[in-house]
Nucleic acid binder design. Sequence first.
DNA 1: CTATAGGATGGTAGCGATACCAAAATCACG
DNA 2: CGTGATTTTGGTATCGCTACCATCCTATAG
Lengths: 339, 339
Amino acid sequence: MKKKGRGGGAITMGDIARHAGVSPMTVSRALREPGTVSDKMRRKVDAAVRQFGYLPNRIAGSLSSRRSNIVGLVVPSIRNSLYASMIQSVSDVLRANGLHLIIADSGHSLAEEEALVAALLAQRVCGLVLHNTVHSKRGCDLVRVAGVPVVETGNLVARPLDMAVSYSNFDAAKAMTVHLGRLGYRKIGFVTLPLRDNDRSKERRRGYLAALKELGLPVDHDLVLEAVGGLNEGADALVRLMQTGSDIDAVFFAGDVLALGALFECQRRGWNVPGRIAIASFDDLDLLRHTVPTVTTLRVPRAEIGRRSAELLVNRLRGAPPERVRIDVGFEIVQRDST
Amino acid sequence: MKKKGRGGGAITMGDIARHAGVSPMTVSRALREPGTVSDKMRRKVDAAVRQFGYLPNRIAGSLSSRRSNIVGLVVPSIRNSLYASMIQSVSDVLRANGLHLIIADSGHSLAEEEALVAALLAQRVCGLVLHNTVHSKRGCDLVRVAGVPVVETGNLVARPLDMAVSYSNFDAAKAMTVHLGRLGYRKIGFVTLPLRDNDRSKERRRGYLAALKELGLPVDHDLVLEAVGGLNEGADALVRLMQTGSDIDAVFFAGDVLALGALFECQRRGWNVPGRIAIASFDDLDLLRHTVPTVTTLRVPRAEIGRRSAELLVNRLRGAPPERVRIDVGFEIVQRDST
DNA sequence: CTATAGGATGGTAGCGATACCAAAATCACG
DNA sequence: CGTGATTTTGGTATCGCTACCATCCTATAG
């Protein structure tokens, strides 16, 4: 039996309606679908809204309409600049459509991803973008039951949860390895990122091995290293490979930062690249075009992945039928001076 | 007069309550404050929750409790890796406290920032972190009226909107310039990032000029350039400065990417660093410790800024009194081989 | 000038949770 | 074993908005 709820209560639609001399419904419509309201009404409402600096409460709106305007995005690591351009383009497309983005990072952990997906769904996000393509059982169930559109972007899986926008890590790694073989390199080392719960890493290694077979080169397990990422790790890996004693002539790094670290190590030690050792990278970090020498790499259209993922979500939210989509954005080998 | 609302309606707390044979309130409590509910009840609730894979609707919860668990963060550009470690630490602290993070980027535009702040407040975020410290009038008003805690992080302003966690861009740029002067450099160039609506850039330039004065060095406006950022821009700026004809002996870049671009240009042209030209940078990008030569720079504790900002917000949300806080995290000059 | 379609308004009933208070169950102790 | 002090549990009333349908105008046609 409260009276005017004097409390700190913020301004509501009802307040605006009263001051504008119209009904709350008219305020609601004037704000959301200005076209369905007469000019006179709209002006009255707009005036009151401006006068009070009114901001509609989207929480109430979402609850009432059973529709939210927030999309959830889970990446393995926010810090990794590799995801930045993808996040940016997702964000741009969403905002152009009045949607917001909650970003969370799973720290490369499956369990954490599951917890995040649950939290995001509890938040009733209207869509999800997941970079990882390996999920826990419960994670999959949650998504399925929630019925929100989902895009997976890390690897082009055969049978996505819902939609997938990516490239084939296997094909890409294989193509680069074959490319090195064609250039004449015979002892090609490979440095992979951690394989645990990460199909992208696994696929890349599989691609490397498949390429060796195709090239008719022997697999030397001493030439395959796992590194956790970071400049130092790349430098270390390179040095360890060089010390194997084998006459290694090229190294393919499955991560751009690793390759960069290795290149700097070469500069420090005065090892000629590619004379003494050739270096190839994965992912076209802008930097790789500027170093001396410039670095041969695999270019993946990260921004395009983000853009198209967001577009798929937006279309779905606009009513597009829920069909399984699988978009291959491809990749490109960029031959530069390091090989 | 709907019956059981058969529709696609998701499972609600009421459903769980019915199946567990308890009241909805008990379910609500069992989920939020398990301690206030008897073991027997809690077990019944937990069982039903698991059986149905129930996820509480946080939207309804927020509306009802007039409290949300989402913090908004506005940075000038998501793509800029400089913000990544700050974002990551904000995100980490928030999540450890059950809060989520909406990230938006203003594209260095004041108007855009205002729109984003409005949108985030409409979303009823429970706190804000703004990197920019220059705001539009309406932006300030909105924040003030909303009454949510706000942390500004880009520059240590004298009188923050609410709270500030940062360092003094002026002091930092001045300190580095003086440092260069003490090392014996007499003709010190300066490359600034865009100054428009950006007090960080302005403060840095001010610091540079103040240092020259303190060092008793003349100001040569030909030695001060504005560049929009990016490796190419850094390289261009360096070349232009070298071509001024003046016997410039050092350049201080107000952005790490610019410095990096310049360094690579030197490598390409075979200009000895610091023999022919010394290079100093702003912001300790990891890379700068690995290049040849390593680059002298200003280290700003970005992760600490993020962490402390988030902590301030969390404390406020826990009931800490709204007092104006201003935390100076300081900076550090890292002398390396490029100067 | 009346009938009627069609757009512009308003009223009512939730959306799915939580706050607040009352009722019931449990406990402590003389 | 009774009585008041304490938990535990449940009922009711919102939170601020939108969906849905009823109502009211204002045109257009016959």
